[in-house]
């Protein structure tokens, strides 16, 4: 199974790592690797989450992650490609 990297922008607030880690654990998904770091905006952190998931399971994990209020956006980095494109969950401001 191919590894996928999720680039997750989150609010830099207490407990946000627990929210993300807890979601993976209770929905029975594994995290292969996780790193958290600052962005140029001090109120926003970036989590890079490597998962061994694809297809339906990957879509579900992205959809569930996106439900966390502190998660601002999720970009999926496709393996062997450089351009992040699909599953950009930047909020749709039309609605």
């Amino acid at each position: 199974m191919a590894q996928h990297i999720l680039e997750v922008l989150v609010e830099n607030s207490p407990g946000v790592l627990a929210r993300v880690a807890g979601l993976f654990s209770r929905r029975a998904y594994n995290i292969e690797r996780l790193s958290v770091g600052p962005t140029t905006d001090p109120s926003i952190s970036q989590m890079d989450i490597v998962v061994n998931l694809e297809g339906h399971a990957l879509e579900q994990v992205i959809a569930q992650l996106d439900k966390l209020i502190n998660v601002i956006s999720i970009k999926e980095i496709i393996p062997n490609k450089t351009a992040p494109a699909v599953h950009d969950t930047q909020p749709d401001y039309q609605n």
């Binding site: 989150v10 609010e11 502190n70 998660v71 956006s73 909020p91 749709d92 039309q94 609605n95």
Partner: peptide, 10 residues
């Protein structure tokens, strides 16, 4: 206004 919460109603 919550950056990470924009429920789609339409």
């Amino acid at each position: 206004n919550l950056a990470g919460y924009k429920p789609k109603s339409i």
